[in-house]
Design a protein around this nucleic acid. Structure first.
Ligand code: MN
Ligand code: MN
Ligand code: ZN
Ligand code: ZN
Lengths: 161, 161
DNA sequence: TCTAATAATGGGACTCAGTCTCGGAAACAG
DNA sequence: CTGTTTCCGAGACTGAGTCCCATTATTAGA
């Protein structure tokens, strides 16, 4: 999700409405914010962003909205090894991408790979159990950080959190 | 890691010793427990298990031990979408596996797939940045749970935590 | 339009995995 | 042995996420 997809917001609203959910201000704000965003956001990010634009929403409501959206497959929850989870809109068509995280600066980048997806699909078939989702996370050093690191450095240590 | 590998424990002790770490009771207990275990353990699991066998170890020491072990690549940290992380011994040869988690009962199973690893390796090369680790997690429904679920069930929802 | 039923909201207390601190214990080089 | 340094444990602390519940908003139906 490198480019924000404005149509995702309407789609999300529609899905929830058709599922019988009433429309409330808080959840709408969360959806609209996610629709306008290019990159995955944490619950914290969402709270801060909404407050900053004068549309503060209770923390409980943010988590509730995220739960519902995950439930309907409208957003994808990402665990990136940080303390908090991040969320990003999911393409209704099922097309998706995965991420590489820089172990040095924590930057998150997306990539999209047909071959990887194909390998996972075949693997699922081979396992003999029904697989309906998967996560892939690559860890490495981004270009910028690779240039900045002195040559005689001991192996990078990634402390949890 | 379906079968505990007793030699891993000695290997871990050796690596740490050669790296200049002093040998202390707490970390030894953690290593020995991990070496005897077939499945990934959380920090909580470790604390409980050690206490149960009368070898209680401070929580801080458990996390310290896990940090060091991750740092030297001796264990692998797993995020399985639960609240806490899990840890399991890493094969010194670099050979490893990934996991499938059942969305219904939470059971964790390991699998090992050459084709997937090859796809990831090629992908890393294509990305043009140095990748030194990766995670893959499949989510689905295990055989047991597939049999138990009534036919007219709405799509399984996986609530976070 | 009005109303009743019910879903959504938000403040704030609470949980609990993980972190930090610091005084004391153990390891080990010399 | 002894001094230096690392390791250890108790417990205070942090912060993401959860829970509760009184209040407010939505909406189907009269
Ligand atoms: Mn994929
Ligand atoms: Mn792999
Ligand atoms: Zn970087
Ligand atoms: Zn199951």
């Amino acid at each position: 999700m490198s480019i924000p997809d404005p149509s995702w917001g309407t789609h999300a609203h529609t899905v929830l409405e058709e599922a019988g959910h009433r429309r409330g201000g808080a959840r709408d704000e969360v959806i609209d914010l996610l629709a306008s965003q290019a990159c995955a956001l944490s619950a914290q990010d969402i709270e801060t962003a909404l407050r900053a634009q004068g549309r503060a929403v209770g923390r409980a409501s943010i988590y509730r909205a995220l739960d519902v959206l995950v439930e309907y497959g409208l957003i994808k929850r990402l665990e990136v090894g940080r303390a908090e989870a991040c969320y990003e809109p999911a393409n209704p068509g099922g097309h998706h991408h995965h991420h590489v995280v820089c172990e040095v600066c924590g930057e998150l980048a997306a990539f999209d790979d047909r071959e990887l997806e194909a390998a996972i699909a075949r693997l699922g078939a081979r396992l003999g159990m029904h697989i309906d989702d998967h996560d892939v996370l690559l860890r490495g050093t981004c270009r910028e950080c690779a240039g900045r690191v002195p040559t005689a450095t001991p192996p990078q240590h990634l402390h949890q959190h």
